[in-house]
Design a protein around this nucleic acid. Structure first.
Length: 445
RNA sequence: CGGGGUAUAGCGCAGUUGGUAGCGCGCUUCGUUCGGGACGAAGAGGUCGCCAGUUCGAGUCUGGCUACCCCGACCA
């Protein structure tokens, strides 16, 4: 149930880190690190939190050959260990806000794993903030949610719905959970990232108090938010075809690959020199490049290899291009090929990279729109879940028991109350009780 | 936790009534190739998941165990 991430895949994760680190820095969030092992007694402080996580904890019971009196939990998330420290660090309103993120790995002992989307161990970032006011905390919650939207929409070309989780779906210990929900090609929903308003639930049990500017004593308002390697699963599921992956240009570790083409009459020195000239020209204008030199693999094999990896553009350079100082540019997404001369090359490559990015988003957006159904009868609801699946927007009474019945009968759970949902007076699609908003339903992974 | 399956070369698999293990891909070397997964020749690579039993003889039959996979239940 664990995964090995090889260099090409890890480069994608590093790209995600770069994007989020830049966004977080703008807001003043700093990276830090906290222990992997958490005393079980700390986990148990917040009742709802430990109840939610205990079925999936890996626990160290023996250390150094001796049975531990207080077993150590391999972190499933770091609220408890971090907030133990926050209680010591925060004394005054001047210590706030405290904005800390950590990039790490966590372990959740799922009964059933699914590569990329639900692995026993996964990598993520978890941001944990403490604020003087609830309003400020809520702004942070929505800020983080918007960062995640940017990662998905602007880089992964993966449109998503932002919204608030129902009580039964929220994070264990949170006051409210907000999420990014994406729709995968099989019609199931992927919870792509979450941002929690923790209220004062944790600050009260971990005793994180500060003196206000008026001299009073108050508990801090907290948030936590995370995005994991599951996001890459969403990327892979969304962008691909029978030939492999199609990476959106902005996230592709290699945006352009040059494949030299040579026969026995080719002047290899001249060809290699020209390939390097092309590489340097593109690299110095900011394009992420690779030249696949070497004659161990045939040209056809190289083509296929890079298609599987999803590199957006392939430059074919052979004797014909060398002679005319041209390059043949082939798009990964639609296979279109065009011959461009060296002078126009940078401009054309940049335009094509942008077009591929835009096209990927447009295709994914169309799929999302085409597979989002406004439904007003339970019959129709069930029919969609039995056939195409997808997102369903339906009125719901917000009663947990009703929600559970819908899930049991249709496999669809509430994914979120979309942030843009309008207040209306209507009736629950299942039980007919009064309902005020259309919730987003779908079968989750 | 319930149901079903699998285990033989690096990977994917075949192996008949029990007779001492093979195919494809990959890998190594050499040569010819190279505008869509090249071709030829010669090679390397095995505790048949583990333990016990039956038998002259077990990859194959019997019993036990272990690991992994799929489906279901569960799942911030």
């Amino acid at each position: 149930g664990c995964m090995v991430i090889r260099p090409y895949g890890y480069a994608l994760w590093e790209a995600v880190q770069d994007i989020l680190n830049r966004l977080m820095r703008l807001k003043g969030v700093q990276n830090a690190y906290f222990p992997l092992l958490i005393p079980l007694s700390l986990m148990e402080k917040e009742k709802e939190h430990v109840a939610g996580f205990s079925p999936e904890l890996a626990i160290v019971t023996i250390g150094g050959g001796e049975k531990l009196k207080d077993p150590l939990v391999v972190r499933p998330t770091s609220e408890t260990i971090m907030y133990t420290m926050y209680a010591r660090w925060i004394k005054s309103w001047r210590d706030l806000p405290l904005l800390i993120n950590q990039w790490n790995n966590v372990v959740r002992w799922e009964k059933r794993t699914y590569l990329f989307l639900r692995t026993t161990e996964f990598l993520w970032q978890e941001g944990h903030t403490a604020h003087a006011t609830e309003k400020e905390a809520m702004e942070m919650v929505l800020k983080a949610l918007d960062w995640y939207r940017q990662v998905y929409e602007e880089y992964f070309a993966l449109p998503a719905v932002l919204g608030k989780k129902s009580q039964s779906e929220k994070f264990a210990g949170a006051k409210a959970t907000y999420a990014v929900e994406a729709l995968m090609p099989d019609g199931k929903a992927l919870q792509a990232a979450t941002s929690h308003n923790l209220g004062q639930n944790f600050s009260k049990v971990f005793d994180i108090q500060f003196q206000t500017s008026e001299g009073g004593l108050a508990y801090v308002w907290q948030t936590s938010w995370g995005l994991s390697t599951r996001s890459l699963g969403g990327l892979f599921l969304t962008h691909g075809d029978d030939a492999g992956l199609i990476l959106p240009s902005k996230i592709a570790p290699t945006q352009v690959v040059i494949i030299p083409i040579f026969g026995k009459d080719t002047d290899r020195d001249a060809l290699d020199a020209y390939c390097l000239e092309v590489k340097e020209a593109l690299m110095s204008s900011g394009v992420r490049m690779h030249v696949d030199m070497g004659d161990a693999e045939s040209v056809g094999r190289k083509f296929n290899k890079w298609e599987v990896k999803g590199v957006p553009l392939r430059l074919e350079i052979g004797g014909r291009e060398l002679e005319g100082r041209n390059v043949a540019i082939v798009r990964r997404d639609n296979g279109e090929k065009k011959l461009v001369n060296f002078q126009q090359m940078i401009q054309v490559v940049k335009a094509l990279l942008k077009e591929i990015q835009d096209t990927r988003f447009a295709v994914a957006k169309k799929f999302l729109v085409d597979n989002t159904h406004e439904v007003d009868s339970y019959e129709e609801f069930k029919k969609i879940m039995d056939t195409t699946r997808g997102f369903i927007k339906a009125f719901w009474c917000e009663d947990a028991a009703c929600e559970a019945v819908i899930k049991k009968e249709t496999k669809a759970s509430t994914r979120c109350l979309p942030l843009d949902a309008k207040k209306e007076n209507s009736f629950c699609v299942h039980c007919g009780e009064p309902a005020t908003h259309r919730w987003l339903f779908a079968q989750a992974y």
